[in-house]
Nucleic acid binder design. Structure first.
Length: 498
RNA sequence: GCCCCCAUCGUCUAGAGGCCUAGGACGCCACCCUUUCAAGGUGGAGAUCAGGGGUUCGAAUCCCCUUGGGGGCACCA
């Protein structure tokens, strides 16, 4: 095991986001590639917005993707694993308090008694003057007496970190040297709220140092926060980790991917029937490439090839079409039993939602697998594809049965003829090979295009114009139901004509 | 407004000075296969490498400027 240590630090204030999953994946891949350690830490200091339900969604989503971590809680509300715990920030409060006390004692930070109203007024004034928002420093130089006065007034004190003038530069592993002038950081920033709870910029540094994080691999949206973090690392005497800022995942309009404009919750992708292999494969290729033309790869294959050098700098638009294509590729690569197992829950959901009348057995699904596996971009499409097999009383609108080039009379005639042809066929064996010849000869004898006849039958027995191959479909339905549905269609057409 | 980052087909990308009359994939179009839909196969359209200056014998690749896009500037994370 190398001493490379990376982490994913989600905040349980929302469901697992595509971007968080991608960042987690890159960290996991990097750890795997370097034989390092990958840990998960929950940043739950925004108590008002954090919840166990979100924690569960995040941990389960990451597990579902097949992403595993060496340290940190495995389940929502569950126990910590690893020597650097606790891994939930609200359980690490005394450490932040100690670090803040140290900064205060060394006058690297100071108590700030400004009220939200005062701060708000400052901000508005700056905005009106077209100045960048910046803390005015009202409490930066308070004397002991002045502080005593505020305390006597009962004003709560937040803790502000002093930002000294100067330049902060660091060597980003994907972007190279990045330099900031600390005068552009917005002034002294708050590290502990008036109520005593610590803020992100502070906790992330205290914890990354405590947990011996060697590489901070995160989204580019954190790039301009990095100088603040570096200032804190230095003030606290901690070694600075290597930073690597990943390109953002974008909406189609090239803004940062958001719930408003895109589907961002991993759970939604799961619910629609995207499979982990495809999602992992797709996400890994969003902002990183092998440098070769390989593109369909497993997690392990990606981990072997992964490096920070091939991480893209520019943002990447999330392309759902490409994801669906990859998903189809992976669905076709799954072995039979695996696919059946993964399909069943979707059929069950269709049953519960009333889209089909019963949940088929694994054997039944296995039997139709060859007809559907090439036709599934996502698992959730299975019901639309062959749900007609498990609908008891299929009602098909007579008008939709009539093929484009035919009229109702011809269709009625054809279905009636087809019905008897099928009734005559395969009394012993009802098989695709047995069904096709008689129906083809029927079409030929009557001067119909076989395709038109097949289409009429197809719609009559499935209610759809796009289905798996007709004869396999008829076999799957079984002789009785085929004849019954044909009869129903014939009656419907006859009624329409009369 | 200020700071930072970025810039190759519509999209994801290959490309680390000559191998590029820029390659692959998704999507799109056509054809083949074919009872529909897919899958698969073949072929095609699609990027004057954002624009302009340099450096160099030679630049998509290096430098500068411009333009465009994005991100960040909270007692959110």
């Amino acid at each position: 095991m190398s001493d490379i240590r990376v982490r994913i630090a989600p905040s349980p204030t929302g469901p697992l986001h595509i971007g968080t999953a991608r960042t987690a994946l890159f960290n996991a891949l990097y750890a795997r590639h370097t034989a390092g350690t990958f840990l998960l830490r929950l940043e739950d200091t925004d108590v008002a917005r954090s919840s166990v339900a979100f924690e569960a969604d995040i941990l389960e989503g990451l597990h579902w993707l097949g992403i595993t971590w060496d340290e940190g809680p495995d389940t929502a509300g569950g126990e910590d694993n690893g020597p650097y715990g606790p891994y939930r920030q609200m359980q690490r409060l005394e450490r932040y308090a100690a670090a803040a006390a140290e900064l205060l004692a060394r006058d690297l930070a100071y108590p700030c008694y400004c009220t939200p109203d005062e701060l708000d007024a400052d901000r508005k004034a700056q905005e009106a003057a077209h100045l960048p928002p910046k803390y005015v420093g009202r409490c930066a130089t308070l004397s002991a007496e002045e502080r005593a006065g505020r305390i006597a007034e009962g004003r709560p004190a937040a803790t502000r970190f002093r930002v000294a003038p100067g330049l902060v530069a660091f060597d980003d592993a994907v972007r190279g040297t990045v330099e900031f002038d600390t005068s552009n950081l917005g002034g002294d920033f708050v590290i502990v709220r008036g109520d005593g709870t610590p803020l992100y910029h502070f906790t992330v540094v205290v914890d990354d140092a405590a947990m011996r994080i060697s590489h901070v691999i995160r989204g580019e949206d954190h790039l301009s926060n990095t100088p603040k973090h570096i200032l804190l690392f230095r003030a606290l005497g901690y070694p600075e980790p290597v930073f690597a800022h990943l390109p953002l995942i974008l909406n189609p309009d090239r803004t940062k991917m958001s719930k408003r404009k895109s589907q961002t919750a991993i759970s939604d992708y799961i619910a629609q029937g995207f499979i982990r292999e495809a999602l992992v494969n797709y996400l890994a290729l969003l902002g990183w490439s092998t440098g070769t033309e390989e593109e369909i790869l497993t997690f392990d294959e990606i981990a072997t090839r992964f490096d920070l050098d091939h991480v893209q700098k520019g943002g990447a638009v999330f392309d759902r079409e490409r994801l669906e294509w990859l998903n189809g590729q992976w669905i076709r690569r799954l072995d039979e039993e695996d696919l059946v197992t993964r399909l069943l829950p979707f059929l069950e959901a269709d049953h519960i939602a009333g889209r089909i009348d019963r949940t088929p057995t694994a054997d039944e699904v296995r039997a139709v697998l060859p007809m559907i596996r090439e036709r599934l971009p996502i698992l959730g499409a299975v019901g639309d594809l062959i749900g007609f097999l498990w609908i008891d009383d299929l009602r098909v609108d007579a008008a939709t049965i009539v093929p484009k080039r035919w009229d109702a009379v011809t269709t009625l005639d054809a279905l009636t003829a087809a019905r008897s042809a099928i009734a005559d066929t395969g009394a012993v064996s009802f098989e695709a090979d047995e069904l096709e010849p008689p129906l083809r000869s029927l079409a030929e004898a009557r001067g119909w295009k076989a395709g038109d006849l097949f289409m009429a039958i197809r719609v009559a027995v499935t209610g759809r114009t796009a289905t798996p191959p007709l004869f396999d479909t008829l076999v799957a339905l079984g002789r009785d139901r085929v004849l019954e549905r044909l009869e129903g269609a014939i009656e419907g057409l006859a009624a329409g004509i009369a």
